[in-house]
Computed example of a mutant assay.
Amino acid sequence: MNHLLEVNNLEINFKTYGGEVKAVRDVSFHVDKGEVVAIVGESGSGKSVTVQSIMGLIPTPPGVIKGGSIKFQGKELLRASKREMRKVKGSKIGMIFQDPMTSLNPTMIVGKQIAEGLITHQKLSKQEAKKKAIEMIKQVGIPNPEERYNQFPHEFSGGMRQRVMIAIALACNPELLIADEPTTALDVTIQAQVLELMKKLQKDTQTAIILITHDLGVVAETAQRVMVMYGGIMVESATVFDLFENPKHPYTWGLLNSIPNLEGTEKKQLIPIEGSPPDLFSPPKGCPFAPRCKYAMDICLEEMPGDYQIDESHSARCWLNDSRAPKVEMPFTLEKEKTVTVGGESID
């Protein structure tokens, strides 16, 4: 099967005065047409750097892509020229950034910012581009689109600015949309509206989405597959149901155990993951999570685990999945301690 996007053995470093940061190490994954794939993990795990490399947004220097492959529709992006990448960015791959206020041009009306990509990639006239831009403003749920077309970003609320970013990203009907923590700067009510909008547009247009987030509640509501990153590597990959029902990496257990339980009246203290993330100037030679893992064995500190295949769509990089390892069960059960809604259904 030919995947829409294939990333294989990606390695990205950043050269700094303090040394070389090994930000992404041996990351592989794929995305199929019309699929929503989430990448989760705490800050500094390599999520944003991974997707920025797909768009060719790694600044060089200090960034260096040390190895690997990124293929979109079978074409190798890492060897593409700047001219070739300009044809891909915006037209075939769109991106929504974390903070819309710093991503939008404050000196240009929002309508022209939406129309810009249409004129560049679809060769529309200015009048045709304006008409399509107004349609996009309406499509993303912004009222009075003709009036809003001529307004500047500072005249929009945070949620409205994020809707403008979605309109820009989807204006040219891309095959793939990358959403890098699109709801981080928004309040809870607006977060829900933006996520609902993204789900609706994805369903209507069959655009594939890579969703970057640290919020597992968002993942459960929107994604079909999930990849968990830690210390620059992909530690677990599974369907969203498998990840919540049968996680196989202690870091994933920690993430799930830190979800607040909103069911019932009993108050419980959240359980954090003790310790600090690894130093990526000098990453450990073994599992990067081993110093924080209470199930770590000697081999975990000495050697990086392989990618153990749990089933056809589920894999985890953890020595506990080796047949020779002691049997360790997840230290809590979702049925008793957590209620998680996945795709509108509760795991209970």
Rank of each mutant, 00 (worst) to 15 (best):
E266L: 09
K130D: 12
T16F: 08
K200W: 01
T120A: 15
T205K: 11
N321I: 05
I233D: 02
I93F: 02
G254Q: 09
S28L: 01
D180H: 09
E236Q: 12
T184K: 09
C300K: 09
K75N: 04
N9S: 14
E135T: 11
I271Q: 13
L243G: 06
S69L: 06
L255H: 14
E11D: 14
D180M: 03
L186Y: 05
L10Q: 04
I233Y: 04
A238L: 12
C300D: 07
R25T: 11
Q224S: 15
V37I: 13
V342E: 01
R163S: 04
S81R: 04
I178Q: 02
F156H: 10
K66M: 14
C172W: 00
E266Q: 14
L57P: 09
K200A: 11
T60L: 03
G159F: 07
I190P: 02
E345F: 02
M227S: 14
P247G: 00
I273P: 09
T183A: 07
I299L: 12
V31W: 03
L262V: 10
P291L: 07
Q113I: 13
I70R: 03
I142W: 08
L256V: 00
K267A: 13
A296T: 13
T189C: 04
M234F: 00
G18Y: 04
K200L: 04
P291W: 07
D26T: 04
K130F: 06
Q269Y: 09
P272F: 14
R324K: 15
A169L: 00
S125M: 08
Q127L: 15
L270I: 15
S237C: 14
N261Y: 05
G74V: 08
G68H: 02
P278W: 04
P100A: 04
I347K: 14
C318W: 11
A290K: 01
V226N: 13
S103W: 09
Q98N: 10
P59N: 14
Q193D: 06
F152T: 00
M55G: 10
P143Y: 03
H314K: 05
L243F: 15
M165H: 06
G94C: 11
E135W: 10
G117D: 06
K138I: 12
A38W: 09
A115C: 01
T333Q: 12
I168T: 03
V88G: 00
Y17G: 11
I212V: 15
A38G: 13
G275H: 07
S69G: 00
A129V: 02
I190Q: 02
P272H: 15
L176C: 01
P145A: 09
E329R: 08
L262S: 02
Q73R: 10
